[in-house]
Simulated assay, not measured.
Amino acid sequence: MPNHDRKTSKKEKSTTDARDKDMSSATAVMDRPAQRVRKRSDTTINLRISRRTRDLIDEAAAVIGKSRTEFVVESARQHAIDVLLDQRFFELDSEQYAEFLRILDNPPLPNQKLRELLKTKSPWEK
Rank of each mutant, 00 (worst) to 15 (best):
P108R: 06
D105A: 05
Q96V: 07
R40H: 11
V83P: 01
T15W: 03
V37G: 05
L104W: 00
N111Q: 04
D20W: 12
A26P: 03
K121I: 04
N111K: 02
A61Q: 05
V29Q: 09
K21C: 03
E74W: 05
F100A: 11
E70T: 08
R52G: 03
L85A: 08
R77K: 10
I57W: 06
R115P: 00
S67G: 00
A34P: 07
A61I: 03
K113Q: 10
F100G: 05
S75E: 04
T120V: 05
T27L: 13
E95M: 12
V29W: 04
T15V: 14
I81H: 00
Q87F: 05
R68M: 04
F100W: 14
T44G: 06
R40K: 15
V37H: 02
A98Q: 08
R88E: 06
A80V: 06
N3S: 02
T69L: 05
D5I: 03
Q112N: 10
R6D: 10
E70M: 08
T8E: 15
D86E: 15
V72A: 00
S75R: 11
K39F: 04
S25A: 12
T53C: 04
N3M: 07
S67N: 01
Y97F: 15
Q112Y: 13
E91I: 10
N111G: 07
D55M: 07
A18F: 04
R115Y: 09
A34F: 13
S41C: 01
V63D: 13
R48I: 13
